[in-house]
Design a binder for these strands. Structure first.
Lengths: 205, 205
DNA sequence: CAATTAACGTAACGATCGTTATGATACTCG
DNA sequence: CGAGTATCATAACGATCGTTACGTTAATTG
């Protein structure tokens, strides 16, 4: 019972994602949020709780709506294809929207005040989760002969994520999609190959 | 004439560098600054101007005190040595100080409010300058036969900077120096070689 | 149709932001 | 020594931060 909500929560959340994506957690004020979401402050608090809770909701939505290509990439047959897909899709995503470039997982909070430290740590955790799943995928690749026995899967996953993060920084600085894709190709050119037929059965063009 | 300054400007500036390095431009308040620099607010204004001017001074000092290895690296004989030196020194610098990890050039302002936009652009310019000097160095390497004729020097420079920025993000997230060095080595393993004797006359161990 | 309930907009909360009067203090120069 | 000046610490400025009373409006329930 009671009055029914006059705005769509999901739609408002999408708007919040865009604002945080552009300005980061601390760079966003409630004035920014109310303007972008078309919702007055008290409605935000009743629907999402405080700013921190709203950001966490926005981050979760970002991962499921924009970073869904990462779990999808993990299903590709070779580690090289996994990496190629992640790097290329990241280059595209980071330059897709001219008014909020880069990655929310990086833009959200890199260095911040003590007040925002919980958000910074939450972003670190989120990134670490993706990196861990990538490492696990590389371990599987090693077992399959797709990566050499000597491969350091932890380091390889960290390398791929480092390039992705670096591209996000450059995207926020205005780098073109083409330039980021050139960076991605350079990163790919280092990729080790195993000795099974797996990696040769899916040649890159 | 008049009263003489009771604090050392350079020393205070070094303290400001550390604070901005840790919390970024917007994450730092004047309370943080006065506490870290041991100087009251009006003295900061009279010595440095406002917060934006202070940050620009701190950024300049950061480049000359901590990023001096970049111009030094450009003088090394081969492009591979240049890149190796930059990546390894970056990995070290980004993990050197436990209480302000990463890079001021990234931590300073990645995504921010509209008020801090001038600082964000200044950081972009500063990074672009280093990237351009790296590209120019690679062009020279190409002329010397140290890089193949087909090498895309702009993309190579962007790649090296992307890895550096990615390592900075990871350093701020708590990654160890060893892990960052493994990332650097992986990046190095992609490095193209020319066909002159130059690159072979300085083999890596 | 009342009674109840929840979301609405307005407007204000205390705290902190970056910035600056203001008067006291310490130094230089005539 | 005394006039002048620059730096000092205290304290306050208006603006904005994230957050929330409060009275009104619209929907549901008996």
């Amino acid at each position: 019972m009671g009055r029914k909500r006059e705005f769509d929560v999901d739609q408002a959340l999408d708007a919040a994602v865009c604002v945080f994506w552009r300005k980061g957690y601390e760079g966003v004020s409630y004035s920014d949020l109310t303007q972008a979401m078309g919702v007055e402050r008290p409605a935000l608090y009743s629907a999402f709780g405080n700013k921190e809770a709203l950001f966490r909701r926005a981050l979760a939505r970002y991962y499921e709506r924009y970073l869904d290509f990462i779990p999808a990439a993990l299903d590709l047959p070779t580690s090289r294809e996994v990496v190629a897909h992640i790097l290329r899709r990241a280059a595209e995503l980071h330059t897709r929207y001219p008014d909020h470039r880069g990655c929310l997982g990086i833009n959200g909070a890199l260095a911040c005040s003590d007040d925002a430290e919980p958000i910074r740590l939450a972003l670190i955790d989120a990134r670490a989760e993706g990196e861990a799943s990538l490492r696990d995928r590389f371990e599987r690749a090693k077992q399959e002969g797709d990566l050499p026995e000597t491969a350091n899967c932890t380091a390889l996953a960290a390398f791929v994520m480092a390039v992705t993060h670096g591209m996000a920084v450059q995207a926020k600085a205005g780098f073109s999609r083409d330039m980021l894709e050139a960076v991605a190709e350079q990163a790919l050119s280092t990729w080790p190959t195993g000795n099974s037929t797996l990696s040769r059965s899916h040649p890159e063009p």
